[in-house]
């Protein structure tokens, strides 16, 4: 028996919106501590990882660990039948569920849907706990804007960190450009830019993955970029009171 009730159903919709461009079919894992999801994009260059803690739900019960294989596209079709202010409850009865039930509740209506599940034997990757040598926290819409703008100039974006801050740069056929984001300790937390740089990094990424993921910026006003040289970058959106949505992206390397 599994039941998880989102107080703010709109949050669940934003999470699905953020990952739908990157992953097609996912295994949703539920256990006593909460819900998690880990899936690679079709090219296996990026890895999406969601973690939602049971304490963040209005109601949460999961007697036995469950794996529910679902198509993100079909999940979206069901969620499109809900309002952004609805409370959303996920529920299954059996131990080996073949469907996942959804209840959408608002002041004046209640809806019930069932999504057919599928069995997906997806490889799960072990992401080692890593001490990243550069960790940058910045406004999420700023990061989104930079990736979108520089992505117009070149398909690869460089990220260089230093004690002064973080620099995004592109060198394309049409020319080149760079954007340096300065550290600021403004009292408005959503506008703060913080850099912890033990070791500076200089990495290059395919910017299309950033732009496919940038709807996740609706989840949090700040984004955390964790980097180590020649390691995948981690883009993390903290989901207030619930957990986090992360994108791990393999860097491009000069052969």
């Amino acid at each position: 028996m599994f039941e998880a009730k989102f107080e703010d159903g709109g949050l669940f919709k934003k999470i699905v919106e953020a990952i739908k461009e990157l992953v097609k079919n996912v295994n949703l894992e539920a256990n006593g501590t909460g819900i998690s999801l880990q899936a690679m994009d079709t090219s296996h260059v990026a890895l999406v990882a969601l973690q939602l803690n049971e304490k963040g739900f209005k109601k949460y019960r999961c007697e036995k660990s469950l794996t529910m294989g679902l198509s993100i596209e079909n999940l979206q079709k069901i969620l499109k039948c809900s309002g952004n202010d609805d409370q959303i409850t996920l529920r299954t009865q059996d131990e080996e569920p073949t469907t996942l039930s959804f209840t959408f509740e608002s002041k004046n209506r209640i809806s019930e849907f069932q999504l057919n599940l599928m069995s997906l034997d997806q490889e799960q990757l072990g992401v080692p706990d890593t001490e990243y040598s550069s960790v940058v926290r910045m406004p999420s819409n700023e990061f989104t804007k930079i990736c979108r703008e520089l992505g117009n100039i070149n398909e690869a974006i460089g990220i260089e960190t230093s004690k002064e801050g973080i620099k995004f740069y592109v060198k394309g056929d049409i020319g080149e450009g760079q954007v340096s984001v300065k550290i600021n300790d403004t009292e408005k937390p959503e506008e703060r830019v913080e850099c912890e740089v033990d070791e500076p990094v200089n990495l290059s990424f395919a910017v299309r993955y950033f732009n496919l993921f940038n709807k996740a910026s609706a989840l949090s006003s700040q984004v955390i970029l964790s980097m180590s040289q020649d390691q995948p970058l981690v883009i993390e959106y903290i989901i207030e009171e619930m957990g986090s949505l992360k994108l791990y992206l393999a860097p491009k390397i000069n052969d």
Binding site: S43, V45, L47, Q124, L125, G126, A250, K252, I253
Partner: peptide
């Protein structure tokens, strides 16, 4: 020129 490795190169299958 640059290569784009997959994420599997960095993280092992569990």
């Amino acid at each position: 020129n640059t290569q784009q490795p997959t994420i599997n190169r960095f993280y092992d299958n569990q």
